Simulated assay, not measured.
Amino acid sequence: MADEAGLRAYCCFVCRNYVAEHDDIVSKSFQAQTGRAYLFSHAVNIVTGPKENRNLLTGLHTVADVFCSDCGEALGWKYIKAYESSQKYKEGKVVLEKFKIVKDGDFC
């Protein structure tokens, strides 16, 4: 959460619902169908959809789409299971598409 120092937050681009903190970014080098995406260690105020297997650029994963808990906008996906050992670090983490989130130091 933000404090007097004004931590940078990310919010849903539609309704400005707070979803993640900048300090929780694990990687900025992820790719979604629509462009760049960020891997976060966790996110808040999201709803997780049903699990499904998807062949992504890095192989087969079990993922679940994630949606804003306020407006229902699709924001990205959560890695549930990675089948290749080199990809296990993604399990439990959330990818948010860059164009679906806005950055603000005052919780949007």
Rank of each mutant, 00 (worst) to 15 (best):
E4I: 11
E4M: 14
R8V: 14
R8S: 15
C11I: 04
C11F: 13
C12F: 06
C12A: 13
F13K: 13
F13T: 09
V14Q: 04
V14H: 04
V14F: 00
V14P: 00
V14L: 10
C15W: 04
C15D: 15
N17I: 08
Y18K: 06
Y18S: 03
V19W: 00
E21G: 10
E21C: 05
D24E: 09
D24Y: 00
S27Y: 01
S27F: 04
S29A: 12
A32H: 00
G35V: 02
G35C: 03
G35Y: 01
R36A: 10
R36T: 03
Y38W: 12
F40D: 00
F40H: 02
H42F: 09
V44S: 10
V44L: 07
I46L: 15
V47M: 10
V47T: 13
V47A: 11
V47C: 13
T48A: 09
T48C: 11
G49L: 08
P50V: 11
P50Y: 05
K51V: 14
E52C: 12
E52P: 01
N55E: 12
L56A: 11
L56T: 11
L56C: 09
T58E: 11
G59V: 13
L60K: 14
H61G: 06
V63A: 09
A64C: 14
D65S: 13
F67Y: 15
F67K: 10
F67V: 00
F67E: 08
S69F: 02
S69M: 11
C71A: 13
G72V: 11
A74F: 06
L75R: 02
I80S: 04
K81P: 00
A82W: 04
Y83M: 06
Y83W: 15
S85W: 07
S85C: 07
S85D: 15
S85G: 05
S86I: 09
Q87R: 04
K88A: 14
K88Y: 06
K88W: 01
K88T: 05
K88S: 11
K88G: 01
Y89F: 15
K90Y: 03
G92Y: 05
L96R: 01
E97R: 02
E97Y: 01
K103G: 09
